[in-house]
Amino acid sequence: MSPRTMAEQGLSPKREAETHRLLAWYDRHRRDLPWRAKPGQVPDPYHVWLSEIMLQQTTVATVASYYRKFLELWPTVEALAAAPREEVLKAWAGLGYYARARNLHACAKVVAEELGGRFPDTQEALGALPGIGPYTAGAIAAIAFDRRAAAVDGNVERVMARFHAIETPLPDAKPRIRALTAAMVPERRTGDFAQALMDLGATICTPKRLNCMICPWTEECAGRRAGIADELPRRKEKAERPRRKGVAFWVERDDGKVLLRERPDKGLLGGMMEIPSTEWTARGSTHPEAEAPLAAAWQRTGKRIEHTFTHFHLTLDIWRARISLEAPLPARDYRWVPAATLNEEALPSVMRKIVTEVTSRRTSRR
């Protein structure tokens, strides 16, 4: 780290030393990630933004392949903005939290069409774009533009809660953690500092296997000194997720095409394709046939899938029917799709479970 005076950095001697140790550790042990600029390279704001949106509530291991695929399909923000939203949703399928994909496309259009293809370089301006919240705005500002901004994700929350021995449970501790993190951000190498904190939480200060012996902050860590590091951060006890039930309708035409429906833009899984189903309610449907997409000789398959969303757990029984080629579409938001190409559709994970359940049953009969 290029040293600066304390006055220039605005850090106390203690904080300056801690920051120096963290950055020295990062220089030796930084992770090699597909979206991370190499030492000496200038980060590409498009790459930083794309990766940060994908990494929201998703693991690094999961994101890597999606990130590479998106760059192959849309190497610039202008290319992404010009892509049909349906194609973006298809490429996103499996990453979850699909509002992120809709906002990703909306943000790309704003940047490409209203900002001349350039991302704004301040946390405040970034936060005004679709899909960019406080953490993501701070991360992009710091990493892409070296702005003095705090980026506090789950890894950083854990590191800071232990480092400062914060025993207030999350989420109540979040404001204090953000303030303490912001107070430690140096004026130089802010992007490296943000990524160093993330790497520290991902590789050393992990949820269950702390490796304090090789941590650059082991001497200063208040949680370690108090013997409570492995207990932090504390969390409020979560209420049990409510359960919902429903029936999914697998409709196959005589030519092998399957009926899909596009969900409304607003709400859960907005804009994604789905196997039609009843409403998902706590009691389930008492007369599923009345909620079926069309009249048919429905058969209970005896199969069901289960899926856990953030706020509830879902069980869907699978019914199926076969109909003739002359059967009309139930409505404009329905369409017939060849069964062989279902994997290419913008199906969320819960719907892919239905496809797998139905098609695997068919295979096992042969």
Rank of each mutant, 00 (worst) to 15 (best):
V159T: 07
Q56Y: 09
A81W: 08
A79K: 12
A61E: 14
G94F: 13
V60S: 03
A79R: 10
A99P: 00
G138W: 06
R118V: 07
L129A: 06
L126C: 07
M160L: 15
L80I: 08
V63M: 11
L126A: 08
A144D: 04
L126Y: 03
A161L: 10
V111D: 01
V88M: 07
A79V: 02
I140P: 05
L126P: 02
A91G: 10
G117L: 04
L115V: 05
I140T: 09
D153L: 10
P120I: 11
A112R: 10
A128V: 00
Q123P: 01
L89Q: 12
E78W: 06
T58H: 08
R85H: 03
K69N: 12
R148F: 05
E86S: 13
L95H: 09
T136K: 05
A83E: 02
N103W: 06
M54W: 03
Y66L: 08
Y67A: 08
E114P: 01
E167I: 04
R147L: 04
L115P: 00
G96V: 11
A91V: 13
D121S: 14
R162S: 11
R85N: 10
G133N: 08
G127P: 10
P75V: 13
V152N: 10
R158M: 14
A139E: 03
A91Y: 00
S51D: 03
V111E: 00
W92S: 07
E87W: 03
R162Y: 14
T76N: 00
N155F: 07
A83P: 02
A125L: 14
E167W: 01
S65R: 14
R162I: 13
V88K: 09
P130F: 13
V159H: 09
E87K: 15
T76I: 10
Y97C: 06
I143R: 02
V152R: 09
I132Y: 06
G154T: 14
A150Q: 03
L73Q: 12
C107F: 04
A83W: 08
F145S: 09
A150P: 02
L115W: 03
S51H: 01
Y67L: 04
A61N: 12
F145Y: 12
T76Y: 02
R85A: 02
E167V: 14
P134L: 14
S65K: 15
Q57V: 02
G127S: 05
E72H: 14
F70K: 03
E86Q: 13
T58E: 01
E113Y: 14
A165Y: 01
N155G: 08
F163K: 03
W92H: 08
V159C: 12
E124L: 12
P84M: 05
W74D: 04
W74E: 00
E113K: 09
R118M: 08
K90W: 04
